[in-house]
């Protein structure tokens, strides 16, 4: 059974069309991540699913029901916002129970669900505090708790980690992954961070300029990108796109090689000089210049390079990706 289906969703603001003909299915219990650069329409798509914006055309089904005209509160969804969006005049308990009170749920249900959510999120000690008395990480946990107590059919996350610092981001990411395992509810998660997308998703939807570029599991997209955009967006450092002529391959317009698939070799076809070295301890990222063309190489372990040092780089043809002039993959 599908948790949510989108059929040919279009959305325009005045004359500007921000979503183009988007169709998508989210299975029961699936974790779907919308990823793309800012302004690609992923947040708008999420808001359309939530009912905060109306689609200009197309159908939205949640748990088998058409919800095009259903108000957000009746769609069986819960949403977590980037800015937490906690109610400043209510304490943690009040924040978490407001929606249930609106639904006129009995107090016993309220208490039980709040207790359960608090236990999952380690919030027991903060129930009587106000949002202003909590740290950023705690606020985001309260916001997630507020979503959990509603027991929605579908969770929506709108860049929930963007306001957190790096360490907290990793922890909260793991927490969300655990939460998904524990609740086994479908989740849709919007982010511009490809690491979050790769680590959390069962299914990634890569978007650009209001269009879906490709849908698939993280490894599918990584190993088999449909076009240059998807290939370049997933993976860090990003894939190198080299003109065919540079690597002695006149048959293809562009050859894509991931930085980890390049290696030092005396017989390598790419001749370059070291421009920049990022030593990360475990890995070393080298940005080398082959003429005007920057090439990033990711080497395992520590390598002492000096700026200006000449390098000869090679790659295996079967690990490379080939693209035509329009950025489409050529097999």
């Amino acid at each position: 059974m599908t948790a949510m289906t989108l059929e040919a969703i279009n959305k325009s603001f005045g004359k500007v069309q921000v979503l183009h003909d988007i169709s998508l299915e989210v299975d029961e219990g699936e974790f779907v991540v919308f990823v793309g650069p800012s302004g690609c329409g992923k947040s708008t798509l999420l808001r359309v699913i939530a009912g905060l914006e109306d689609a200009s055309s197309g159908d939205i089904h949640i748990a088998g029901e058409k919800v095009n005209l259903t108000p957000p509160s009746k769609r069986g969804i819960a949403m977590v916002f980037q800015s937490y969006a906690l109610y400043p005049h209510l304490n943690v308990r009040g924040n978490m129970t407001l929606a249930l009170k609106q639904e006129k749920q009995p107090k016993a249900v309220l208490d039980e669900r709040v207790a359960k959510a608090c236990q999952m999120l380690d919030l027991e000690d903060y129930l009587d505090r106000y949002p202003s008395e909590l740290s950023g990480g705690q606020r985001q946990r309260v916001a997630i708790g507020r979503a959990i107590v509603r027991q929605p059919k579908l969770f929506l996350f709108d860049e929930p980690l963007s306001n957190l610092d790096a360490a907290l981001r990793v922890n909260t990411r793991i927490e969300i992954a655990n939460l998904h395992k524990a609740l086994d509810t479908s989740m849709i998660y919007v982010t511009h961070d490809q690491t979050e997308a790769m680590t959390l998703a069962d299914k990634i939807v890569v978007m650009k300029d209001g269009r879906v570029e490709q849908i698939g599991s993280p490894m599918e997209l990584y190993n088999n990108p449909a076009n240059k955009f998807v290939a370049g967006f997933l993976g860090s450092p990003a894939m190198n796109f080299l003109p065919g002529a540079l690597v002695g391959d006149a048959n293809h317009h562009t050859v894509g090689v991931r930085p980890e698939n390049l290696f030092l070799s005396d017989t390598g076809v790419i001749e370059a000089t070291v421009h920049l070295v990022e030593e990360l301890g475990g890995d070393t990222n080298v940005v080398a210049m082959a003429g005007d063309q920057p090439v990033t190489v990711r080497l395992f372990g520590q390598h002492p390079f000096e700026q200006g040092q000449p390098l000869q780089l090679g790659f295996n043809a079967e690990q490379a990706f080939y693209f035509d002039g329009d950025g489409q993959r050529v097999t």
């Binding site: 108000p71 957000p72 009746k74 949403m79 800015s83 906690l86 929606a99 609106q102 709108d158």
Partner: peptide, 14 residues
């Protein structure tokens, strides 16, 4: 005033 806050209210049925 944060747009998210108003949206959170809408989703909670206010």
């Amino acid at each position: 005033v944060s747009k998210d806050l108003k949206d959170a209210g809408r989703i909670d049925g206010l």
